[in-house]
Simulated assay, not measured.
Amino acid sequence: MTEDFYCDEVLNGKTEVQKVMETDNVLAYYHTRPFYPVHIVAIPKRHISSLLTLQDSDNELFLELMGVIKQVAARVTEEYGACRVNTNLGNYQDSKHLHYHICYGEPLR
Score class of each variant (00 low, 15 high):
K14A: 13
K14L: 05
K14C: 02
T15E: 15
T15G: 07
T15N: 11
T15P: 10
T15L: 11
E16R: 11
E16I: 01
E16Y: 00
V17M: 03
Q18H: 08
Q18L: 04
Q18P: 00
K19S: 07
K19R: 07
K19V: 14
K19H: 00
K19I: 14
K19N: 04
V20E: 12
V20G: 04
V20M: 05
V20T: 10
M21R: 10
M21S: 14
M21K: 13
M21A: 15
E22M: 09
E22W: 11
T23N: 09
T23G: 08
T23M: 11
T23V: 11
T23K: 05
D24L: 03
N25S: 12
V26R: 01
V26I: 15
L27E: 06
L27V: 07
L27D: 06
A28R: 00
A28T: 02
Y29E: 08
Y29A: 09
Y30M: 09
Y30D: 06
Y30P: 06
H31Y: 10
T32C: 13
T32K: 10
T32G: 11
R33L: 13
R33K: 15
R33Y: 12
R33G: 10
R33H: 13
R33M: 14
P34N: 09
P34M: 08
P34Q: 06
P34L: 03
P34S: 04
F35L: 14
F35N: 14
F35G: 13
F35M: 15
F35K: 15
Y36I: 10
Y36W: 08
Y36H: 15
Y36P: 00
Y36E: 11
Y36R: 14
P37E: 13
P37V: 03
P37H: 11
V38A: 05
V38F: 00
H39M: 07
I40K: 00
I40D: 01
I40Q: 00
I40V: 15
V41R: 03
V41F: 06
V41W: 03
V41D: 03
V41C: 08
A42G: 04
A42I: 13
A42R: 01
I43R: 02
I43T: 01
I43A: 04
I43W: 09
P44K: 02
P44S: 04
P44A: 08
P44W: 02
K45Y: 05
K45G: 02
K45H: 07
R46N: 12
R46W: 11
R46T: 15
R46A: 12
H47C: 03
H47M: 02
H47T: 01
H47V: 01
I48Q: 07
I48T: 05
I48H: 08
I48D: 08
S49M: 04
S49N: 09
S49D: 13
S49I: 02
S50F: 05
S50E: 04
S50A: 13
S50G: 11
S50I: 10
L51R: 00
L51Q: 06
L51A: 12
L51E: 09
L52N: 11
L52S: 13
L52A: 14
L52I: 10
L52V: 12
T53F: 02
T53Y: 09
L54K: 05
L54Y: 03
L54C: 05
Q55T: 11
Q55L: 12
D56C: 03
D56S: 14
D56V: 05
D56A: 12
S57R: 15
S57E: 15
S57D: 14
